Every structure is written in structure tokens, then in C-alpha cells.
Amino acid sequence: MFKLRSYQRLWRYQYKRLSNHLSLLSDPVLRQVITKGYAVIPHYWDSARCEKARLAIDSLLSTPQVKVWRDPVNADERIMGADRLSPDLDLIQDPIINRMIERLYGSSDLAKFTLAARLSAVKGNAGSGQGWHRDSAFVYQFKAILYLSDVTQETGPFEYYKGSGNALSMLKFERDYGFSVDQNRFTDSEIEQTNLKHVQQFCANQGSLLLVNTRGLHRGKPILFGKRYALTNYYWPSKIPEHMQSFVN
């Protein structure tokens, strides 16, 4: 009975979003986000602007008054609401990004902020996001991720399981691998039993912009060397989740 209710909820939600998503298929960038779960726009920011943003993040992370979320080993450091603290980190007002995100959601009435992050190569780190996960089991969540440093295989690239945010793929994961349609977190061993050729790794130069459907399976790969800097725009169709509100500056 529980699974039946989950399936019904999923398909009701999909039906509500169907007409909006069909209207996006004529746009080459948004079509990729809807079908594959991601799109990459290179050279969105230049290197000088990225450097200013990195310096701003370093400065804010050393400022006691700034609220910072940190993982258990202090590798993943996040400033939520960074757009409110520094003009160099204000990605949330970008009109081009906002136009694309609003079309994906089918709404301009969104709660939102920019998260600024520094990921460091600390022994035992789980990478950005603390392993494989979905941001939401049912509801679409779209994000804009801007690399502020060059990202290689060693510096914790974003990884995404192609197409995994699509409803049919979610049902296939449950049938083939036992992943419940309402499951949010996944172990490495669970992911390794799947077809790993569908895992896309995003190594790219600073200034690259990723638009992502984070209902799909994704993670930041554990970082092995140096530091990775990024800005991420978060959006919600109603309000910022309660578990995050206490960390927002």
C-alpha cells in the first residue's frame, strides 16, 4: 500500500508538470536539463570575476559573524545566503539564469539564495553533498552551479547519473536495483551495482555553469587534492526548508 501511494503521488506530480516541460523542449539548453538532467554552459564567468569570488569566499569563511555549515571533517564549508554578504557572490540576481530557472519551474515566485562553497582535500572527506543523493524524491529541484576554480578528477567534480531524475528512470531503479522511488540517500555500493556508464563527471574550467535537475542522483566526488570553489543557486517553489533556515545569512 505504501508503494502504491508513492507511485500515485509521483504520477500526479508528473502530470501537473507535463505541459510545462513539453513547452521547454524547443530550447536546446532547457531540453538537456529536462531529458538528461543537466546542461553545461562554458565560459559563463571570466577568470578575473572567478578570482574575486574566491577571495570573497575565503574572507567570509574567516569572519566569525558569518554563519557557516561544515561537514564533520571540515572539508565542505558552505555559506548559505552568500549573495546577501558580498556583491562578488551575488549569482542569484543573474537575469539569464533566473529566466531559465523560472521556465524550468514554470513560476517566477521562488524562494532562493546563493550558496558559496569551498571544498578542501581533507582526509576522510565524503565530497560535496556527503555522498550520492537526491535533493528531493518527488518534487523537481533545479539548481545553477558555477565553478569558480578549475575542476579536475582530483578536485571533487560534480557527478550526475544521466536521466535519473526522470520518473520512468526512478521506477526502473526500483525494479532493477531495489531503490525505492522515495529514497533520498544512496551508498557507494548501491550505485556501483548499477550501470556506471551513465554516470557523467563534470570536469571543467573555472567560469563553467551547470544547470541541473537535482531530483536525479548526484554527488560531489570526494576531493583528493587542493581546493574547489563554487557558487550554487538554490530555488524552491514555496519557502526555504526549515532545516536550512538557521544557516542562512
Rank of each mutant, 00 (worst) to 15 (best):
Ala56Ser: 12
Ile101Lys: 11
Val40Gln: 06
Met1Gly: 09
Ser180Cys: 08
Lys67His: 03
Trp11Asn: 14
Tyr105Arg: 08
Val151Tyr: 07
Leu119Trp: 02
Ser108Val: 08
Glu192Ser: 09
Cys203Arg: 06
Gly37Lys: 05
Gln201Met: 15
Met80Ile: 02
Asp27Cys: 05
Arg99Leu: 14
Ile57Gln: 11
Lys16Asn: 13
Ala75Phe: 05
Pro64Lys: 00
His43Ile: 01
Leu148Asp: 07
Cys203Gln: 03
Tyr235Phe: 15
Ser120Ala: 11
Arg12Pro: 00
Gly165Gln: 00
Val199Ser: 11
Pro241Cys: 08
Glu192Gln: 15
Gln65Lys: 10
Pro237Arg: 01
Ile79Glu: 07
Val40Cys: 01
Asn195His: 13
Lys227Phe: 02
Leu211Ala: 01
Asn205Cys: 06
Ser189Val: 01
Ile223Met: 07
Lys112Asn: 11
Pro95Trp: 01
Gln183Cys: 13
Gly178Asp: 05
Asp76Gln: 12
Gly131Gln: 03
Phe202Ala: 08
Pro64Gln: 10
Glu77Phe: 07
Ser180His: 09
Leu110Ile: 10
Ile57Asn: 06
Glu154Trp: 12
Val33Asn: 04
Leu61Gly: 04
Arg228Cys: 04
Gly226Asp: 06
Lys221Leu: 09
Gln65Asn: 05
Lys239Phe: 07
Ala117Trp: 09
Gly216Glu: 08
Thr232Ser: 13
Asn184His: 00
Pro72Leu: 13
Tyr140Arg: 13
Arg5Lys: 15
Ile79Met: 12
Leu22Met: 04
Glu190Ile: 11
Asn74Ile: 01
Ile41Thr: 00
Gly226Phe: 02
Gly131Cys: 03
Ser86Met: 05
Arg84Met: 13
Ser136Leu: 03
Thr194Trp: 05
His198Ser: 14
Asp83Arg: 07
Asp88Lys: 12
Asn195Pro: 00
Gln141Pro: 05
Pro42Asp: 03
Ser107Phe: 04
Val181Asn: 02
Gly165Phe: 07
Gln65Ser: 15
Ile79Gly: 09
Thr63Gln: 09
Leu231Val: 14
Asn205His: 01
Leu89Arg: 10
Asp88Gly: 07
Lys197His: 14
Gly81Tyr: 08
Thr187Ser: 07
Asn98Glu: 14
Glu77Trp: 06
Thr187Ile: 02
Val212Thr: 01
Ile101Phe: 02
Val122Arg: 15
Gln200Glu: 15
Phe225Asp: 14
Arg228Met: 14
Pro222Leu: 10
Lys239Ile: 04
Arg5Ile: 15
Gly129Ser: 10
Ser107Ile: 11
Gly131Met: 03
Ser86Ile: 08
Thr214Asp: 07
Leu210Asn: 11
Lys52Glu: 08
Ser120Arg: 14
Lys67Leu: 04
Gly165Pro: 11
Arg54Met: 06
Pro72Thr: 12
Val212His: 07
Met170Ser: 03
Leu91Glu: 00
Pro157Ile: 03
Ile97Thr: 00
Pro72Asn: 13
Lys227Glu: 15
Tyr147Leu: 09
Gln141Gly: 10
Ser128Asp: 02
Ile145Ser: 01
